[in-house]
Amino acid sequence: MQSKPIALKILDVVSIIVLAISTYLALFFAPTELVMGQVQRVFYFHIGTAWVGMLGFIIAAVSGVAYLITKDMRWDRFEVAAVEVSTVFFFLTIVLGSIWARPAWNTWWTWDPRLTTAAVTELIYIAYFMLRQGIDDPEKRARFGAVYTLLGGVSAPITFMVIRLFRTIHPVIVGAANANQEKMSMNGDMKIAFFFALFAFTVIFVDLIWHRIRLGSLEDKVEQLKLKVSM
């Protein structure tokens, strides 16, 4: 593998800087939320990671389709990178949501549509990696992976829809708290922290995907060398 391209090095540095700024904005710049207190500061990272996790899911489904059409291994590497990075971020989203829900709603977990869909999506990601692990042939692995991300990409929005529709008919105990949170008004400084977090996590996401793609091409190289040596 060639040494790191300069653009990637720059992106690394930029990622660290935006993460630092975003942390500062979330921790010190944004005012304390009155109802929920300090824990509300977790919200900025929660939204940032959720956005990136969703973005990765869409990217994965799209590159899955692109792989099936073009049969170009680069799309497969892109897809794996998107899924893996999203798995990490979605895990964070769920944990942060849980940490936030505990003091705000007095429960670690609610079967709210967003939380549940996030959890189901995370399970789809994990199933995706288990599927890939069980296949030796790289070409077949890529094909099956692409098909599965496509299925997941179609199923996840329906899951969200299903749970939301049912919740609107059957209001649950946390419904009130939920509505409160929906109304959570953001003042100017909060909005700055909010949008900067979205931006920061997008940059970090791109940086990590890039690294994961490079790792993927290393993996492919090892696989090819192994084939050559064993022949």
């Binding site: 189901v120 399970l123 789809i124 199933a127 899951t159 299903v162």
Partner: peptide, 10 residues
């Protein structure tokens, strides 16, 4: 089941 259940949840 690991592949099917999360996709079949809806």
């Amino acid at each position: 089941p690991i592949l099917l259940f999360p996709v079949a949840i809806p």
